[in-house]
Amino acid sequence: MNSEDVDLIERCKKGHAQSERELYRRYSPMMFGVAIRYSNSRHDAEDIAQDAWVKVFRYLKSFSENNSFEGWLRRIVVNTAITHYRRQKKHTHHLDIDEVYATPQDLEAFNESEYNKEEIEKAINALPKGYARVFKLYVIDGFKHKEIAETLGIDVNTSKSQLSRARKALQVTLLNMARIAKKKG
């Protein structure tokens, strides 16, 4: 964390309104990106991001400069998104997707150069919600299994098994998408 950020955070801690707006402008694109990743719609993402910012300003005094501020913000958005979904009772953790398990041949055939970001994003969002959430937390946002277990209220082993299944399901989905594209082509 650079000294400019440290000064900005210190001013925010003292309740300086202009500094709060400056902090928001600096980090809101990152926060909104994370919120969109964990939400079903842009409208939900806006609600999640706003709730997360309220928490940021409320608990900013408890933040220590020794930690990563971006990591702290990311964690707040993710927790807010999960709370949001728990409230809406939309998430389902334990959908059985054994039928989409990838075979060794599929994994060998997987070639990353065939897929762009939108396609991978689409494939992740096509996963069952529980698997998609564990995959995003672990692979994209860098959470550890213990942290995922605490955040989602699941066992560490459940987190590990869901991640494994999510990876395989994602690769199968991407291969199917590639096959469909080839047929169309």
């Binding site: 707006r21 928001y24 990152m30 926060m31 990106g33 991001a49 690769q171």
Partner: peptide, 25 residues
């Protein structure tokens, strides 16, 4: 595969709506 996906989404930013700032404050 993990590295490929991570690299794709690293430092991903999305600009929030213009009125979001005023609504928040």
């Amino acid at each position: 595969f993990d590295q490929y996906v991570t690299g794709m989404f690293a430092n991903e930013t999305v600009q929030p709506p213009a009125d979001a700032e005023d609504a928040l404050f």
